[in-house]
Computed example of a mutant assay.
Amino acid sequence: MLAQREKQIYLARLAEQAERYDEMADHMRHVVEAGGELTPEEGQMLSVAYKNKVGIQRAAWRVVDATMQKETEVGHLEEASYAAEYKKQAMFAGVRTCEEVLRMLETDLLPNATHQETRVFYLKMRADYYRYIAEFHPEISECREKAQWASQEAYAACQEGLSPTHPIRLGMCLSQAAFHCEILGQTSAAVQMGKKALDEALTQIDDVPEEHYKDVVLIMSVLRDNLALWTTDMQSC
């Protein structure tokens, strides 16, 4: 018979295959709460589960927000009020998910991280989920400030401990640039950060280990696409 931890991991894998990410997140939360340091694979499973769960919630919030604005613009005030209430529900659900991840990071994952790469991985997660909360609460400056603090902490840790072509460092550079563009409205700073990360990575692209190469190429491609979009936005202003 499988031990409880192994059972939860097995069920999380099944939930991932079935694309039932709410359940996958619950199973991985039980693994975290059991104590001890997660393996790199388990950390990735936790990240996948919650990234997909909150991704659906963020998308729902954006759809309802756009609908509310559209109803307001055409003078459908009653419908806009219904959409506003629904938007609150979507926001509360998303924030609850983010706060759940942040609690695990602060109480279990970061204190138990014994390797620099693992610690940076969790710092990046923390920065991402503070950024998501800032997306849900664009009107609250404290949320932006916490997101900026977490982003700076993770970015500094990446710069110190990981090579420019490490997937975690590249992913953090992408997140940092996106934060400056989407949350702070600093598109020029986002472009500078993105270009710097790409230039540094390109100088060492031939030295990327085979097991990281696919991830590195994918992140660099996303970064290039975002840079093109941000540059176009700057030119159109």
Rank of each mutant, 00 (worst) to 15 (best):
K146P: 01
A178T: 09
V74L: 09
Y213M: 13
L170C: 03
H137M: 13
L162M: 05
M1F: 06
Q116D: 13
D199T: 13
Y50K: 02
S175D: 06
V120P: 01
F136G: 02
I205C: 05
V191E: 02
A84N: 08
V217Y: 04
D215Y: 04
M104W: 08
A228D: 15
S221Q: 13
A228T: 14
A66N: 12
R29K: 11
Q204P: 00
E200H: 05
L202Q: 15
M28C: 01
S141K: 11
V95P: 06
Q57N: 05
F179V: 02
V216R: 00
E99M: 13
E182R: 14
Y155Q: 08
Y82N: 13
T72C: 08
L229S: 11
M220P: 05
K7T: 12
P111F: 06
D65G: 01
S236P: 01
T118G: 10
V54R: 03
G75M: 01
A189W: 01
M220D: 02
Q89D: 15
K146C: 04
E211L: 12
S81Y: 11
L198C: 09
R62K: 13
Y122T: 03
C143W: 10
P209M: 09
Q204T: 12
A156E: 13
E182F: 07
V54G: 01
Y213N: 07
K146G: 01
K214F: 09
W230E: 03
A150W: 02
L218V: 07
M234V: 08
C158W: 01
L105E: 04
T114W: 02
H137D: 09
V32R: 03
L198G: 05
E19F: 07
K124V: 04
V31E: 11
E73G: 00
L46E: 02
P111R: 06
S175T: 04
G161S: 09
T39C: 02
Y21L: 06
A197L: 06
E100Q: 11
S236M: 10
S163K: 12
V74E: 14
E200N: 08
L109V: 09
E106S: 14
E99W: 05
L77P: 00
E6C: 00
L227N: 10
A80D: 11
L123R: 06
L223H: 03
F92T: 15
A12T: 00
F92I: 10
T114I: 10
G36N: 04
L202A: 09
E106F: 03
R58S: 10
A147C: 07
D26A: 14
A60Q: 13
E71R: 13
E37Q: 14
M68E: 14
I140T: 14
L38T: 06
L218F: 11
A12I: 01
Y129P: 05
A156I: 10
K195I: 10
L105C: 06
C98Y: 01
L14G: 07
A12H: 02
